[in-house]
Nucleic acid binder design. Structure first.
Lengths: 221, 221
DNA sequence: GCAAAAGTGTTGTTGGTACACCCATGA
DNA sequence: TCATGGGTGTACCAACAACACTTTTGC
């Protein structure tokens, strides 16, 4: 314990998206040994004068071109042998991004790809456990905190929102109970405009009012 | 980012105890500059080949002499300037120990002292935020997971248990509702023996049956 | 006029909360 | 016998779950 400490510190990002009505993860293809051909979370080392949170944001920015993305620290993985190439302790962060807004060129450059959450390929090291832990955390939190909106555009419809929740929780929800709960939260603002792309009748758009929510903090879905 | 990474990795332990019917924290007195005279969590650097979890256990063992103590990782604190003496990233762990079982000599040697959770002295660096975060986590979890028993002896009475919960949650609980919930969980085993030290009537001892609980996992208090 | 998705209320059940008195015992 | 903490049951209320039909519109 007295010798000089030789531990590298990294961050890994669990990047969620909601595409084709399914919860998906953005993974990068590993083009080099060891574990070449497997997939992995996008990660990077922490800079000497960089906040841990900033490192996670930088890693995400480099891949997606997106800034000011909502991220949460999940937990830190510190088993001595977790990375066979050396001693690396990694803190995981989960992020939510919109496929429509990110920079597809950058993603191509990194050989990244979206995978539905229940059809993940083989991942390197302990990344699978990292993902599972982040998904569990998301499921625990999504009903009590308005975090899922980061996976939808500003304007969204209630059928969209419900499908998102069903995708995250991986269970069907009752339409009327779901909509009643939404109606009880007055920071869901119903707009005049309708989304006509999914049905003939059209579904009203809603938006989520952060400022109004901040006064109540009673989110519940 | 290309230069050699120079970040030290540490663990800090938030050590809970339940003494004199109050939730307390074990803190160590800081006898050197900077921040001399303030109090701090007990912490230490992670060994090069030591699991992060093991480092937390070692730190706790060195202070208390206790092994196989229940610990949970809380979160990792990685702000670049959190420790003015250098770049240190620290992962916090929370632990629960019994005053009656730990090694008082060791604790004296480290100039450690118990403080009720709502009468904490000034702490160094970001340790106060660490404590707050661990307390919030404990309060969130204590009603759904049987973790509080680590703060009681094997045999405990229901009045004891209720006072523990009231201390943790910092709110009074209804005695009858509390006891009904206990009665619904059949892994609370009522013993023949009574604790006669707190009242004339005496209160029955109970024990918590881990194996039975493992089959149900429906803890709720 | 029909197919396809959007939208709408009621009822039963369950879990939570509030609340006051009797019991056992040692001094 | 009395003071002290231990132990017990019921009634109300709120939140949740289950469930089926009508509306709108483009084709």
């Amino acid at each position: 314990m007295e010798q000089k400490q030789q531990i590298k510190l990294a961050v890994d990002c669990i990047i969620f998206g909601f595409n084709n009505n399914r919860l998906e993860l953005l993974l990068v293809h590993r083009g080099f040994e060891p574990e070449k051909g497997k997939w992995s979370l996008i990660g990077g080392y922490v800079g000497n004068e960089e906040d841990l949170d900033d490192a996670a944001n930088r890693v995400l920015y480099n891949l997606s071109g997106l800034e000011n993305i909502y991220m949460e620290q999940v937990r830190t993985w510190g088993e001595a042998n977790r990375d066979p190439s050396g001693r690396v302790v990694s803190t995981t962060y989960s992020a939510m991004i919109l496929k429509s807004e990110y920079n597809a060129e950058l993603v191509n450059k990194y050989d990244a790809q979206w995978f539905p959450i229940d059809e993940l390929p083989e991942l390197i090291f302990d990344h699978r456990a990292m993902v599972d832990s982040a998904v569990r955390r998301l499921r625990r939190r999504v009903r009590n905190y308005p975090i899922a909106f980061n996976l939808l555009p500003e304007k969204f419809t209630l059928p969209q929102l419900q499908m998102l929740y069903e995708g995250i929780l991986s269970e069907p929800l009752d339409k009327r109970n779901f909509r009643r709960k939404v109606a009880q939260m007055n920071y869901f603002i119903k707009l005049e405009e309708k989304d006509m792309s999914e049905s003939r009748k059209g579904a009203y758009y809603y938006r989520f009012d952060e400022a109004l929510y901040a006064k109540e903090l009673n989110f519940n879905l």
